[in-house]
């Protein structure tokens, strides 16, 4: 299953209910909730950290955490690159 870390810049995904306890509390509190839409805005060199927009919150997280949050990939047509 894909995770936030597997999103390409411009792609969207939905955080799944399953395995939600691996989402750190702090991220959950910042709006990274199951069912929320995630957009990959930008990645730093070596894909780390990752700059995402989730539930209207723009945050940067490390790849290590991003790869723990499972999503369903929404095929994205308006993504660039």
């Amino acid at each position: 299953m894909s995770t936030i870390a597997s999103l390409k810049v411009g792609q969207l995904g939905i955080i799944v209910e399953e395995n939600q306890h691996s989402i750190p509390l702090k991220l959950l509190e910042m709006g990274c909730l199951p069912g929320a839409e995630v957009e990959m805005i930008q990645v730093a060199p070596l894909n780390d950290p990752m700059y995402i927009c989730v539930n209207g919150s723009h945050v940067a997280i490390r790849k290590e955490v991003a790869s723990k949050i499972k999503i369903t990939n929404l095929d994205c047509t308006d993504g660039e690159k």
């Binding site: 750190p24 702090k26 991220l27 910042m30 805005i41 950290p49 700059y51 919150s57 723009h58 945050v59 940067a60 997280i61 490390r62 955490v65």
Partner: peptide
């Protein structure tokens, strides 16, 4: 260690 930073407008 937990790193998260808000990217404000």
């Amino acid at each position: 260690s937990f790193f998260v930073i808000e990217m404000p407008d």
